[in-house]
Design a binder for these strands. Structure first.
Lengths: 215, 215
DNA sequence: TTTGATTAATCAATCGTTTGATTAATTTTG
DNA sequence: CAAAATTAATCAAACGATTGATTAATCAAA
């Protein structure tokens, strides 16, 4: 019973997450969401109070998932800073780039100038990731393994910006890469390792190479 | 007379560009746009046929502006590939990052899975920029001044992705950087040169440094 | 039977668009 | 040039459709 209720709520959240990602907050109607979820329209308000409540519930559900993913990497003291960053990239590409319309959802709505309460909520969630990455980079900076003159905030913008660019504009990325990146086989076998390799080389060249040169 | 008409249409486009950027295509109502532009609601349809027509008109107006900016750089044979890229970065930061809600508008709407005709139009516009950048990078690749194993599509994703990340999520970027990036003085005097410096160092480290090491 | 879950029907509000009428500007005609 | 005819620009009002939300009735389970 209770389990069924939770499953149904989770199912609604799954569907709503995708519909919101595809059509935006305003473009996604409650009728479309309830229709695709196979539930009565009134159930959305019954469970989540309002459309915005449903929207926020999607975020609430994600925030814990993100935290646990990052804690496992950041708090492992047996790894060097670069090793942690390497691990972060692998995990991000593996778990976040693929099949995650939530990222599209986040990036579209945060760029709006309305719904400031919602923006604050989104910002709070994203900062969890960002602070973790920043901690790792600054760790490498403090122990001298990274070049001293790196611009940490900009590096963060590059890490998330590059990732976002690829997943947020799949039509465009597909044209640039020369293959439909929404093709799951291609994404799994070719693009994922390619993104990992590229990001590591790019960051290594900027973060540690110059230091190596001076040595 | 005729000038006034053109100015009025341009004024509507200016206002609509900002309102669309702030609220999204669906979130921006024709009443809001006409209201802020100080014109009657029917004028939007009179001039542009429909809301989507108005939306497309904003893009039509921009495409020529972008083309001329890029042609001046790409077709100058007196510059090396790296010099062109350097120039591109300067121009992008100078003319596109600042006060350009159009970029936010583009990136929000292209991430939608509806209105495919509109997405195609946007993609076409963006490809103008991308092809130009790609040409420059491949020029440096072919004449040996860039490292041979670089991933050109990924570099493009980084260039535009980093830029987009900063301007599309100003609230978040401000938190990361530690200063409100919407502060014009800060943007002009500190952030703009900082972005230029960073992007050049990052790209140089990845594109040419490894090659220098092997020599 | 009583409580919570679910439904169809309906609400007021807002959406983008269209209309018919009116004014201003331009062109044509005598 | 001046009067008439035509076109362009602008407006308030209203259109049908859709929006998010709510209601009251029904269903299911304990």
């Amino acid at each position: 019973m209770d389990k069924d209720k939770i499953d149904k709520k989770d199912h609604i959240l799954d569907v709503a997450e995708r519909v919101f990602a595809d059509f935006g907050f305003d473009g996604a109607s409650t009728r479309t969401i309830s229709g695709e979820a196979g539930v009565n329209m009134a159930m959305l308000n019954y469970y989540f109070g309002s459309k915005e409540g449903l929207f926020l519930a999607i975020f609430e559900r994600k925030i814990s998932s993100f935290r646990t993913l990052l804690q496992n990497i950041g708090n492992d003291d047996s790894m060097t800073a670069w090793c942690k960053l390497d691990k972060c990239i692998d995990n991000y590409v593996e778990r976040i780039i693929v099949n995650n319309c939530f990222q599209k959802l986040i990036n579209r709505e945060i760029s709006m100038n309305k719904r400031w309460d919602l923006t604050d909520k989104i910002t709070e969630i994203l900062m969890v990731n960002i602070v973790e990455i920043r901690k790792i980079i600054e760790e490498g900076l403090n122990n001298g393994s990274f070049y001293k003159d790196i611009d940490v905030p900009m590096v963060i913008a590059t890490i998330f910006g590059t990732k976002n660019y690829i997943i947020n504009t799949p039509q465009l990325s597909s044209l640039i890469i020369g293959h439909d990146i929404r093709d799951e086989k291609f994404m799994e076998e070719e693009l994922k390792p390619r993104i990992k390799t590229y990001m590591k080389r790019l960051l290594k060249a900027y973060l540690v190479n110059e230091n190596d040169n001076s040595k």
